[in-house]
């Protein structure tokens, strides 16, 4: 019986249109959940004013002098 995590990973693979060989399935599944764990921080609330960076905001700024 697949776990919810198994189903989630299988769905992610299907959505991406990828084929993962059986012998690498577990390694990729672990990698997927390790990535999702790191990306949890992206769920922290942001304000409406926090717009995406299209490119890094690198307008030259004045330094301390």
């Amino acid at each position: 019986m697949p776990t919810p995590e198994d189903s989630e990973f299988a769905a992610a693979v299907r959505r991406a249109g990828l084929a993962i060989p059986a012998e690498r399935w577990e390694a990729m599944r672990d990698a997927y959940f390790s990535m999702q764990a790191l990306l949890k921080v992206l769920d922290d609330p942001l304000t409406y004013a926090d717009e995406p960076a299209v490119l890094p905001d690198l307008a030259p700024r004045r330094g301390r002098r």
């Binding site: 991406a16 992206l42 942001l46 717009e51 995406p52 690198l58």
Partner: peptide, 27 residues
């Protein structure tokens, strides 16, 4: 192959959130 494939699992919302956080960190 495997490292590139991981990018296929990133959702649109995660990508946009990352770009929002990127701007905050840059500032």
């Amino acid at each position: 192959r495997e490292r590139l494939m991981l990018g296929g699992f990133v959702t649109a919302a995660q990508y946009v959130q990352a770009q929002r956080l990127r701007r905050i960190l840059t500032a």
